[in-house]
């Protein structure tokens, strides 16, 4: 076994000092060593997107990075999306439009959508579809996810 290294992950503004085995994926470190289990694992090989988080504000698959690579980086997960008791517009839109059933894919979709809407607030419907096709959902058939993200986009744009 290789030696552990001490790193600091800044997750949703809070520093977590952890001693990691370099082979631990970022997803495992966040879930099992920082106690933030909102980020899910659906495949661990990059295809489902359930593990999507924001690293330095870009949406990435946390199963395809090692925890050690995120030392000192700014990480945002679904747990940090709401502002206290106030839902993020995307969370609100997901609830109101029934964009989740089992909810397993939801954190990944929320973080993917957050990342893209922050980067491209004016993104077109087609481009949004293209981005949202990055993640898999087995329950909803996607129609309500698309609807919810479009509504949140329009709301966030109007509010800014």
């Amino acid at each position: 076994m290789s030696d552990k290294k001490d790193i600091t992950l800044t997750i949703n503004g809070r520093d977590h000092n952890v001693s990691v085995d370099p082979r631990w994926t970022l997803a495992d470190v966040i879930r099992d060593h920082c106690g933030q289990t909102g980020t899910h694992l659906g495949c661990e090989h990059g295809i489902c997107g359930a593990c999507t988080i924001l690293v330095d504000d870009s949406p990435v698959r946390s199963c395809l990075m090692f925890g050690i690579q995120a030392d000192g980086k700014k990480i945002r997960t679904v747990e940090g999306l709401a502002n206290g008791d106030e839902y993020h517009p995307l969370q609100r839109a997901f609830i109101e439009n029934h964009a989740l059933q089992c909810g397993y894919c939801t954190p990944g979709f929320l973080m993917l959508a957050t990342g893209i809407l922050e980067a491209q607030p004016d993104i077109s419907d087609d481009d949004l579809n293209d981005v949202l096709s990055s993640n898999l959902c087995r329950c909803t058939g996607y129609a309500n996810i698309i609807k919810a993200v479009r509504i949140a986009r329009d709301e966030m744009k109007a509010a800014s």
């Binding site: 679904v78 999306l81 609830i95 989740l100």
Partner: peptide, 17 residues
Amino acid sequence: ERLEDPPLVTGKGRFVG
């Protein structure tokens, strides 16, 4: 709206993992 949703959109779900 569903009663199930609040924990699921905030990452507070308790899946077996």
